[in-house]
Design a protein around this nucleic acid. Structure first.
Lengths: 272, 272
DNA sequence: CGGGAACTTGATCTCGGTCAATATTGGTGG
DNA sequence: CCACCAATATTGACCGAGATCAAGTTCCCG
């Protein structure tokens, strides 16, 4: 998908940069103004950082030297942990493939997923006294660039365009987080589930995780429940209600077909 | 005393900068390393911007010229609106005095306060298509620096230290927002109220809004309810429970005395 | 097939919402 | 300073959405 893995001098471009340039999954990429980046494929591409800044452009030698020292690409399997709340911060991550849940767990086991992050997003940036404020868990198999936090911060300090992109990313995350508070504080169970389905659908389409119906949720009922502040039983029942109203349908293997997008958005109230 | 024209060259320092330098309310300030800033008192001080960057230092002439064009200080009374969700973004605000609620209201009237902002914090930065994503309402009389958003963004682009501070501020806000999601999604009513009281107490102490017991909440029951995703009756009952457990006490005029900070934190679960 | 995990469905209970009745506070004018 | 009234807070009775507990059912993978 990113071109053949040619060890030492291949293309290496972020998923979201790819998307921005009109890539169609399974088809060869046409990058227009972009030029090939000469660097090992196991290292973060300029666009991985650049998108943290919405930039996608060739490297000069100096910048390349910096990049080589920042970090590299890593992989996680579904349900594995990228980082744990309270652990000393080592790296922060820019997702290339897969979905990551940012969550927090109470002593008694209650757990709240506070955000879902898709390709192009960053996770693991928030800290408290040098430790992760939340935990990051892979909801699917995940590929991400792992940046050494201190080196990255130093790098950002020298590249104002990167800082601007970081501000943009954080703003977007903060807006989404506020919307989640609205959902958790004000919506009824079925409204929450409807909102979730609409949100997931829009997110996956935007980030090219899933491209069409039927929609693969990539989340079990317990994960949906932890995201929406409900129990798995209530999630199941709410899905049942939406199904009986002919707003959605469940296809074999648990995938979801949205039959009436208009009414789904309507049932979800929050349009954000 | 010295006959100097006070109008155009008075001190002007952010509340939080003041606090950082050990100011005691009602007492003359002792600023230590700080030097007086020469600028009209109706304009934002360097530290208003600088703190957006944790800086507090004298201006050079060039920087002053920029500052003069960015915006000025404005005032709002309790319950007035700083900005409305959906309105085109004009300014963003750095609070000097008072408390601001960031909120979102659904068509049917349900309302969620998604954040509380105190002196030193910024509000009105989040947008959606050039419009405010949330509304900002004064919970007390408020004094804030209003910055023209476009000019400010341009200014930030030229001052990397400012961008870094903005990243810091947004990170902090995002962390708090995640904690609110945890509260709204997982805590029971009395736990939420306990958490709220502990949070408010810490916030006010840290930002020198209130300095001691009894604690003035600056929020009515309906505002607490909108923040915690509860009803005013439930808030009232939860306060009653904490009172009957001798964790808090209510003094005349509705102020709160925290009798047992340990048990209050404990009842609030989330320590963030 | 068989067995375990995930999902659905049903019965019951409980917390918090709703509706309603006071009680208290705060502001205004006499 | 007090009387009055509106706004806000407390308290009570009742109800319902969603949690909890408990079976079933389907799906998946060896």
């Amino acid at each position: 998908m990113f071109g053949a893995p040619q060890v030492a001098s291949s293309w290496l471009v972020c998923y979201d940069c790819m998307v921005r340039n009109g890539a169609i999954p399974g088809r060869p990429l046409a990058f227009g103004a972009l030029q090939p980046l000469k660097m090992p494929s196991s290292l973060p591409c300029d666009s991985c950082i650049g998108r943290t800044l919405n930039l996608c452009r060739p490297l000069d030698d100096v910048r390349l030297q910096h990049l080589l020292s920042l970090g590299g690409i890593r992989h996680w399997k579904r349900h594995e942990t990228l980082f744990r709340a309270g652990d000393p911060i080592g790296a922060f991550f820019k997702i290339r493939k897969g979905i990551v849940a940012v969550a927090h767990t109470l002593d008694d086991g209650r757990r709240q997923i506070t955000a879902l992050r898709a390709p192009g997003d960053c996770v693991g940036y928030l800290d408290r006294d040098g430790r992760y404020a939340f935990e990051g868990q892979a909801l699917t198999d995940v590929e991400a660039c792992a940046f050494d936090r201190r080196k990255f911060d130093a790098y950002v300090a020298q590249h104002p365009d990167l800082a601007a992109a970081l501000v943009e990313a954080l703003s977007s995350a903060l807006k989404q987080s506020g919307m989640l508070s609205l959902v958790l504080g004000q919506l009824r169970s079925t409204e929450r589930v409807a909102h979730f389905l609409a949100e997931i659908s829009a997110l996956y389409a935007e980030r090219h995780v899933s491209f069409a119906q039927p929609l693969t949720l990539h989340m079990g009922r317990n994960e949906i429940a932890d995201y929406l502040g409900l129990t798995i039983e209530t999630v199941s029942r709410s899905i049942g209600k939406l199904k009986s109203r002919n707003i959605i349908a469940l296809v074999e293997s648990g995938e979801v077909v949205i039959l009436d997008f208009e009414r789904l958005r309507d049932a979800g109230k929050v349009t954000g």
